[in-house]
Design a binder for these strands. Structure first.
Lengths: 229, 229
DNA sequence: AGGAGTTTGTGAACGTGAGAACAAAATGGG
DNA sequence: CCCATTTTGTTCTCACGTTCACAAACTCCT
């Protein structure tokens, strides 16, 4: 059932590594842009903000693309990582929910340059439909199925209010979308085989607040306690 | 050095747990809003999208706030988690970089309702300064120090282009900000004691793309291989 | 009051990820 | 041609996180 082609020996890349590959890709692009053609694991690790042992281990899951005593060819490694991630061609993406965040996402040029193409903007509200955002006309949410079939879309982005998120996700899944990026502050449940990643702005801030509070309490305790038990 | 007040026995909450507390908080708020006053770990776990054993273990790090045979009092647990995270009062926040994303962040009502107050919007560009966004006038980036001192700001949000991110971060750190939420697609380096969390839209999509590609390859291999080695 | 039924809190087993340390492989100089 | 130097790829160990499984503790009904 899990037998594969031929050349991939133990092609199981840990999830933690997968999450870092895009960071390496970006770092390599930055290096290439500044004219650097070769780099050591140490160089790249610094650029990516990780330690070099971890970087080498991550890259070793992909294959053996470096040269001992020399380092990595920037362009070659960049292509290999892009291929592994699957962004050597563009992925069509639909964005549902064109509020403040949807606008920002539609206008974000980083998608285009990093392997994604926004093929449609959808919204359920009459007042938004028909508007042109980032050069694309917003279409009614009902057109989702038609668009997905036409462009063979596998990835959907949810930027609606929280209450609508689960409905939109259900609809996406029913139509055949198998990867969802959810910006709505709500948990969406999906069946086996569908991937969901969530980005939640206030959760990130709350995590920072927790650590911030601890810093403050620690300082306060140190000041009043004086270190004694 | 690490001695604390009195009642906290082993107050070391794992990072993975800290990252989930805001999710529980949101789920509890949703339950409270629908009039539910008591819930079991199973109920809450479902609402939060985790399994109940993990939920109970997470909560056990905070203390023993449930009642065996009964469950958790929604309001009480909600308060305890909010207190632990540190969002019983509002945290002042500054946003630097008022482009598309900065606009969306400034308009995001979720910050306000979840423990944060945007006290200033800053941008370096003359063309943006003076505009009113979400009822707040955009001020020049130079005013950062003044604003941070006036409002005792500890948390900064970076929504600038990638090239500006490190400079903005350096300036924030120099002025005394100790927590940074970075939306710019760049790695920012900060000294010990400063927390940085990053949110990168295209990285999230690339992670989805990786899995999507694997799904496609798996299906393709299964179709051509027929299952035999 | 006592027992049946629930549900929490936690100890123990398991799996995954991180980091140190080193052997293998390449280059370049003499 | 050989040796010193550099840097990768990998092994081993430790720490962290997840899940299972169950005892402790509470309620409710008789």
């Amino acid at each position: 059932m899990t037998t594969r082609s031929s050349t991939d020996a133990a092609r199981v890349i840990p999830e933690a590594t997968v999450a870092r590959l895009p960071v390496y890709l970006r770092a390599l692009t930055a290096l290439a842009d500044s004219g650097i053609r070769t780099c050591s694991s140490e160089d790249l690790a610094t650029a990516a903000g990780v330690n070099s042992a971890k970087l080498r281990k991550d890259l070793s899951y992909l294959g053996s693309y470096g040269t001992r005593g020399v380092g990595y060819d920037v362009d070659y490694l960049r292509y290999q990582i892009a291929r592994e991630i699957g962004v050597t061609q563009d992925w069509p993406v639909v964005i549902v929910g064109i509020g403040n965040l949807g606008h920002a996402l539609a206008n974000y040029s980083g998608f285009r340059s990093r392997g994604f193409r926004v093929v449609a903007l959808l919204d359920a509200a009459e007042s938004v439909v028909g508007q042109s955002v980032a050069g694309v006309v917003v279409r009614p949410f009902d057109h989702l199925e038609e668009i997905v079939r036409e462009h063979d879309v596998a990835i959907g982005v949810i930027a609606t209010p929280a209450v609508a998120a689960q409905d939109v996700a259900d609809r996406m899944v029913a139509i055949g979308i198998t990867s969802i990026l959810n910006f709505a502050p709500a948990v969406v449940a999906v069946p086996e085989g569908v991937d969901v990643r969530k980005v939640d702005l206030s959760i990130e801030l709350q995590i920072l607040a927790y650590h911030e509070q601890r810093k403050a309490n620690g300082a306060e305790a140190a000041a009043t306690d004086g270190g004694a038990a």
